[in-house]
Computed example of a mutant assay.
Amino acid sequence: MRLIQAGSALRLRAGLRPRRVVLTDAHGELTARELQDIATLLRGRGDRAPRLTDLPADAPLRQVLATALASDGALDLRSSGSTGDPHLQHRGPLTPAQLRTLLDLARRIGLRPGVRIASAAPGVHGHGLLVALGALALGAPLVDLTHLRPAARVRLLRDTAPRILTGVPVHLADVLTADQARCEGRPLRIARVVSGSDVLAPDLRADLARHFRARVHDVYGTTETGSLTVDGRPLRGVRIREQHGLLHVRSPFTGARELVTDRGSVDARGRVVVTGRADGAVSSGGMLHHPKAVARLLAGHPGVAGVRLRLVDDQRYGTRTVAEVTVADTVDDSGTPGVEELRALVRDRLGAAAVPREVVLVSGPAPGDPDLSSPDGSPAPR
């Protein structure tokens, strides 16, 4: 049995209250009827329904929502790679078991009809998409903070006064720092702050709670398994066990399969503690990617002679990737790839999360350097 489609939920909501504001962003307010009209226009373009994987990494939430709704509930997402190589996942309408898990998540973080929620998580990322579709289905007004500068995020938060703020820890830290600098003794009041997609440091959690006078929640999950825990407690329908330091997960989104997600432990009271990744992926501001897969893809471009990927410490993101690409010798410049072409290649094949934060073109390999290196400098397979 299949239950609830996002498109059906919006059409019902638009029919009952077409003027109800479903989203506020830097461009203003968007009503249910307006969003439905945009989705209808997208469905009428071309022979193929629009897909989320076609969207750029900086797509605003109104574009993400319209694209998701135009697909009539069937979504193509790129997996995070937590349980294997990144690949496209086809998600249809929610089953009753999946809906029960998501409703438990909404209850625990205080999301219910009419409660305004501000999201700083990109909509093409699993975290941001879940928040956007969940808010829409519940009738919770959404505030789009994505891709805004920290000061602009604070201004929009003050204008909209949401009860819940969610995002990746780096986004939450940006909002905190910006409000501390501009609040003039009158900090924002946010009842709940919800962190996900990356490790929430204890110091940041304490600072968020103190400054916003908020209850702070730490949500753990993956694209493959869906949300799994809130503050270490498994959601309804989720089963997690530890074996040899690895977390084995079964959830309504995995069906009958049990998947290994990350390194961690489960204490005597059933509380789950995640201690690290088990798949070799790198998290940069909550966005996951596999450096070796990126290096192999770039090295396969006909205009590329070699690739070296380096992981660099970054104060804001924790880690960032730098791709040093050696271009192949050609008769003319027609075969020489540009930086944006290489970034687009990675985005299209491996997803927005995999795009290196820096791509540097070099004219020739340094003496003694391998043509293709893994992040630790050892030769990686072609």
Rank of each mutant, 00 (worst) to 15 (best):
L111F: 09
L88F: 00
L99F: 02
R116A: 12
G114F: 05
G123Y: 07
L102H: 07
L94Q: 03
L130G: 13
G84C: 12
R108G: 11
S82I: 08
L94P: 00
T83L: 08
I117Q: 01
P113D: 02
V115S: 15
P122E: 09
A120D: 01
P86S: 06
L136T: 00
A97T: 12
A121N: 06
R108S: 13
A140S: 08
D104L: 08
G126A: 13
A121M: 02
A135G: 15
R91Y: 03
G123F: 12
L105W: 03
A135S: 15
S82K: 05
H127S: 13
T95K: 07
G134C: 04
G123R: 10
P93W: 05
A137Q: 10
A118D: 09
P93N: 01
Q89E: 00
A132L: 03
G114D: 09
H90K: 15
G84D: 08
G81P: 02
G114V: 01
Q98K: 10
H127N: 10
Q98H: 09
P122Q: 12
R112S: 11
I117D: 09
R91K: 14
P93F: 04
T101Y: 00
Q89N: 04
G81Y: 01
V131N: 06
G128K: 00
R100M: 13
R91A: 11
A118L: 08
P93V: 01
L136D: 09
G81M: 06
G134L: 06
A118I: 05
L94V: 05
L111P: 14
R116S: 07
H90R: 14
Q89T: 13
D104H: 08
G139K: 00
A135M: 07
R100A: 15
G134H: 11
I117L: 15
Q98E: 02
G126S: 05
Q89H: 02
T101D: 12
L130Q: 11
A140V: 01
P113S: 01
T83N: 07
G134K: 03
A97E: 02
A135I: 02
A140I: 00
A118E: 10
D85M: 14
V115Y: 05
V124K: 13
A135N: 15
L105M: 03
R116T: 13
G123T: 13
T83Q: 06
Q89D: 14
R108L: 14
H90F: 08
L136G: 04
G139P: 07
H87W: 02
L130K: 01
H90D: 02
L130S: 15
H125Q: 07
G123E: 14
V131S: 09
V124Y: 07
